[in-house]
Simulated assay, not measured.
Amino acid sequence: MGIISKVFTLLKSVVSDVDHHIEDTQGIRLLEQHIREARSELERTADSRVGIVAKVRLGENKLEELKERQQKLEENALQLMAKQEEGALLNDVAAEIARLETQILQQQQILDSFRQVQISIEDAATTAQTRIEQFEQQLQLVKATDATQRVQQAVSSSSRSITGSVSSAADTLQRIKSHQEEKQAEFTAREELRKAASGEALEERLKNAGIGEQASSAESVLARLRQKQQ
């Protein structure tokens, strides 16, 4: 049951690691998708900025034209007044100046509105650009960390595998040595039993005691040769 429990615990750990890896991978993909969507929105905002800038410039040009016309008509009115011509012509010029002043006021209000929108869009675009860049930096950091942790996980798994393999190899080697020692002891015991049964063991004991037929040696050969010389 102990082994089964350990295997079950190991499997739970592996499954948990896989689940976390899948969750992290999905999180990275989701963050990438959000960044792409934010980039798309920023591009559409850029198009809007172009349109607003164009309207502001057109409004500024139109306002400048109205002011120039107003200034010219005022000069004309002064010239008429200088000539003491205060008839219908002067009244018409004055009416046109009044109409231009109304248009200038309205155009100024429209231009101010466009300028305010332009400022708001540019501020929002700048803030969005900064945030997107921050998210992109964080995304790169997350990816780098994820890649590093994958390598660490692979190294850790390999280390555990190598440790287990070395341990298994050591156990196997020890078993082989034990078997060999048992076989050698068995061979030795059989040889001893064989010698005892054939009498060889007794003869060896007598030889060791100096009794019985001795093995030839250099000293015995020299002794025999000397006896022949006498």
Rank of each mutant, 00 (worst) to 15 (best):
A169P: 03
E213S: 08
K143N: 12
K177V: 09
V93C: 12
R29F: 05
R57Y: 07
D47L: 15
E204R: 11
L42C: 12
E133W: 01
L105E: 12
K62A: 10
Q71G: 14
R160D: 01
A169D: 10
K83R: 14
E192P: 00
E192H: 06
S158K: 06
G210M: 01
T126R: 12
I52Q: 02
Q116K: 01
R115T: 05
G27E: 07
G59R: 00
V155A: 05
Q118E: 09
A88Y: 13
E64D: 10
V93K: 00
S156N: 02
S16Q: 11
L73H: 06
E186L: 11
E133M: 04
E85F: 10
H34S: 12
S178H: 06
E136P: 00
A54N: 11
L58V: 15
I97L: 11
K6A: 02
G51V: 06
A95D: 15
E133H: 04
L58K: 13
L173R: 05
E191L: 14
A154G: 08
L111A: 08
Q229P: 00
D112K: 09
D17N: 13
E60P: 00
A218G: 03
A147H: 06
F135Q: 08
S156C: 02
S158V: 02
R205T: 07
S198Q: 01
S216H: 05
L10I: 06
L202R: 08
K207T: 03
A189K: 03
Q152L: 12
Q214K: 01
V7F: 04
M81V: 09
I121A: 03
K195T: 05
F187S: 12
L193C: 08
R224Q: 11
Q153M: 06
V18P: 03
I22L: 13
R160Q: 09
Q71K: 12
R69A: 15
E219K: 11
S48G: 06
K72F: 07
E23G: 08
K195H: 04
L173E: 04
S113W: 09
E23S: 15
A147K: 04
V15T: 14
A169H: 09
I35G: 04
D146T: 10
Q152H: 07
A95W: 07
A215I: 14
F135V: 03
T163K: 12
G2N: 04
Q33A: 14
L173G: 10
S48H: 10
L89K: 15
V14K: 11
H179L: 11
A54F: 06
K72H: 09
F135S: 10
R29M: 09
F187Y: 11
A54E: 10
N208Q: 13
G212T: 00
D92Q: 15
L141H: 05
L31Q: 14
H179F: 11
Q129I: 00
I52C: 03
A144T: 04
V93I: 15
S168W: 05
Q107V: 07
G87E: 13
I132F: 02
E43W: 07
A128K: 04
Q71S: 15
E37G: 08
L111C: 04
